[in-house]
C-alpha cells in the first residue's frame, strides 16, 4: 500500500474522558502498523499536526452534551466518509447521561462555584441521536482488539466482527466459572454485549454492563436472579444505570426501580 493512497483517519472528542482515544495509543505493538495503514490526519490526543478533511474514517468519542457539540458533530459528519462512534459516551450518552434522570440546574449548583459560566444541554445523548452513524464500538472504555478489528475491516472493505450477543458467550468460551451462578455475585453479563473478553468475570467480578445492552437484552428477566443474590430493586437500578443507563433497555429497567429525582425537586 503506497503512502499516497492511505485512507485518512480522524479521531474526534466530544463530552468524554479521552479513555477511548487512549485505547488506540495503548496498542503499542500495533501502532506502527496502524500508522502505516492509515494517514493519521486529525488526532489531537496524539499530535497537534492537523490535516484538512475530508476524512475516510472518523472515530468519534464522547457524547453530545453542549450546544457547541450539537453544531460540531454536524461538521464532523459532513467531513467523514465512515463515522464510527466509540465508547459508552458516544454510543449511549455515557456516565454523564446520569444527568438525564436529574435536574441539571440542581446538579450544577452542587458541583460548580459559578454555574452561570456553564453552557450545557439538559441531556447527554449518543452521537446517533444527532447524525447517522455507520458503525459503533461499545465499552467504557472500548476494547483495543475490537478497535483494530474495526480499522482492519474498514480498510479491507468488509464487515467487522463485532458480535452483539451476551458477555456469557465470552465467559463460557474462556472457561470462566460463572460468577453469578457459582459465587452469587451480581452480574450483568447475561444482558450485556460482548467485546471486552469477559474482563471482569475473568477476575471474579460481576459484569457492570460497560458495553451496554446486548441484542434483545432482557434486564427484567435478569432481575429475579439479581434479587436472589441480594440486590434490592434500587441496587438493581443503580447497577443498570452506571455506564449505559440511557441505553433504552437499561433506561427502562432502571427507571422503574429508581425514584426520579426530578419528581422530588421542589
Amino acid at each position: 500500500m503506497s503512502a499516497a493512497v492511505r485512507p485518512r483517519l480522524a479521531v474526534w472528542k466530544f463530552s468524554s474522558c479521552d479513555g477511548c482515544q487512549l485505547t488506540l495509543l495503548d496498542r503499542e505493538d500495533e501502532l506502527l502498523a496502524v500508522a502505516e495503514a492509515v494517514e493519521v490526519a486529525y488526532f489531537l490526543e496524539a499530535t497537534s499536526g492537523v490535516v484538512e478533511g475530508p476524512y475516510d474514517v472518523s472515530l468519534v468519542e464522547g457524547s453530545i452534551s453542549t450546544p457547541h457539540d450539537v453544531e460540531r458533530i454536524q461538521e464532523v459528519r459532513a467531513a467523514s466518509k465512515v463515522l464510527v462512534s466509540i465508547g459508552a459516551c458516544a454510543t449511549a450518552g455515557g456516565i454523564q447521561a446520569l444527568r438525564n434522570f436529574a435536574d441539571l440546574d440542581e446538579l450544577a449548583s452542587i458541583v460548580y462555584a459559578h454555574p452561570s459560566f456553564l453552557s450545557a444541554l439538559d441531556t447527554s445523548t449518543p452521537i446517533a441521536d444527532h447524525v447517522p452513524v455507520d458503525l459503533e464500538l461499545r465499552g467504557c472504555p472500548i476494547d483495543g482488539r475490537q478497535l483494530l478489528e474495526l480499522i482492519g475491516a474498514v480498510l479491507a472493505g468488509r464487515k467487522p466482527v463485532l458480535p452483539a450477543h451476551s458477555v456469557c458467550v465470552e465467559c463460557k468460551s474462556a472457561g470462566n466459572v460463572c460468577v453469578l451462578v457459582a459465587h452469587g455475585e451480581p452480574c450483568l453479563g447475561p444482558v450485556t454485549q460482548a467485546g471486552c473478553g469477559a474482563l471482569c468475570p475473568r477476575y471474579h467480578r460481576g459484569c457492570y454492563g460497560c458495553f451496554g445492552p446486548m441484542e434483545s437484552a432482557a434486564p427484567e428477566s435478569l432481575a429475579p436472579a439479581l434479587a436472589s443474590v441480594g440486590l434490592d430493586e434500587a441496587d438493581q437500578g443503580r447497577l443498570l444505570r452506571t455506564f449505559n443507563g440511557w441505553a433504552p433497555p437499561f433506561r427502562a429497567a432502571s427507571t422503574v426501580r429508581l425514584p426520579d429525582p426530578r419528581r422530588r425537586t421542589t
Partner: peptide
C-alpha cells in the same frame, strides 16, 4: 435471557460460526 449459557454448557450442542480476520497490512 437468550444469553446462550444452556447451549454452551450442553455437551451435545455443536453449532458454530466462522470468522475471518486479516492483519492491518
Amino acid at each position: 435471557l437468550a444469553c446462550t449459557n444452556c447451549t454452551l454448557v450442553c455437551p451435545t450442542c455443536f453449532c458454530t460460526s466462522v470468522e475471518d480476520s486479516v492483519d492491518l497490512a
